[in-house]
């Protein structure tokens, strides 16, 4: 392990590159650009079914992009890695299902109730934020598995349907669900834009860098982390609810599969956490690759994915966003010079 001093300078330079002058107030044009990101990608994705009509595949893609942005919110801005992120997704899915089955609501209301359930779960789990690092990561995984085992327990069959699965086909409406998913992606991206550009986002990053200094500087550390945690839970809960709505008939293991956490984390990391578009592009590229490998040579899938993670962490810990940033600064240096000469 190198001395802390070396690690410190490394972190400082990376952080400097990642967030160029975080204090500067973005101009109106910059805001317009951010707004365009928030709107354009979801709109394009929303229109894609007109040219490629496997809407369910696109919906799952959008759901994963939302989850990747959710991981971005909590991990990218606070450093808390939620291995159990799927717990919120599953809680949202089951909250939605219970609303449809017991309260006889429509899909829209049910999805919102699902988000309420996942938020409630996040409130109950707030004490987990007292843990750090690997403790938090594994404790959140344990919490998600505990919730799954409770829901799937046969003694609760009359309420959750236990291991026997739920049927939401009564409210099936894939077109509306897809519209909501696209809107949710816009919301998720907007949350990240806000965190990138607001005083609150800045304070989160200050907490991530050094909680002690941040609290001395007057930041309410617990509150800042708690808000990010709840925001990421709401996103996952809504994603889970929408996903449940279109999956329609499913079992507890479907919506609590640890793979869902893993994909969300890997998509976010591959794109680059802390950036606005990294998780979106990371998700689009890897999900397409997943569908492609899955169809052509699936036996190598797990192997290829594992290897990708290893290579990513060893050689590209900043994800695609860091490559894009490097390319951009190179482009600007050369491009800028050319411009000035001309």
């Amino acid at each position: 392990m190198p001395s802390p001093a070396v690690a410190g300078t490394g972190a400082a330079t990376t952080a400097g590159a990642a967030t160029p002058a975080p204090g500067t107030r973005p101009g109106a044009r910059r805001w317009a650009a951010w707004a365009a990101y928030v709107v354009v990608i979801p709109v394009l994705l929303y229109l894609t079914p007109h040219v490629y009509n496997n809407q369910l595949l696109l919906l799952n893609l959008v759901v994963y992009l939302v989850l990747a942005q959710g991981v971005n919110v909590i991990y990218g801005f606070t450093g808390y890695l939620p291995f159990g992120y799927v717990g919120f997704f599953g809680a949202g899915a089951y909250g939605t299902s219970m609303a449809v089955i017991h309260l006889h609501t429509g899909g829209t209301v049910a999805v919102l109730i699902g988000a309420v359930v996942s938020t409630a779960m996040a409130v109950v789990l707030l004490p987990l934020l007292r843990l750090t690092g690997a403790y938090f990561a594994l404790a959140s995984l344990a919490a998600s598995q505990a919730v799954y085992l409770v829901i799937a327990n046969p003694s609760l069959t009359s309420f959750t349907k236990g291991p026997y699965g739920v049927d939401l086909s009564r409210v099936f409406n894939p077109n509306l669900a897809y519209l909501y998913a696209a809107i949710l992606l816009a919301v998720a991206t907007a949350v990240v834009v806000y965190l990138r550009n607001s005083a609150f986002g800045l304070s989160l990053r200050a907490v991530r860098a050094d909680p002690l200094t941040a609290s001395v500087a007057g930041i309410n550390v617990a509150r800042a982390r708690g808000i990010a945690w709840l925001a990421s839970a709401v996103l996952a809960g809504l994603a889970g609810g929408i996903s449940a709505w279109v999956t329609s008939v499913f079992y507890p293991e479907t919506v609590f599969a640890i793979n869902i956490s893993v994909f969300a984390i890997v998509f976010a990391l591959f794109g680059g956490v802390g950036s606005v578009l990294g998780p979106v592009f990371g998700g689009i590229i890897l999900y397409s690759l997943y569908e492609y490998i899955g169809v052509s040579s699936p036996q190598y899938f797990q192997f290829a994915y594992g290897l990708l993670i290893v290579i990513l962490m060893l050689f590209l810990p900043g994800g695609l966003a860091s490559v894009a940033r490097a390319a951009r600064s190179l482009w600007e240096r050369t491009g800028g010079r050319v411009h000035r000469r001309a």
């Binding site: 890695l81 990391l269 994915y305 594992g306 290897l307 993670i309 290893v310 962490m313």
Partner: peptide, 14 residues
Amino acid sequence: EMASLILFFGVSQV
């Protein structure tokens, strides 16, 4: 710490 957690997760998948 986080980087190692994710990296060894990758190793476990392999």
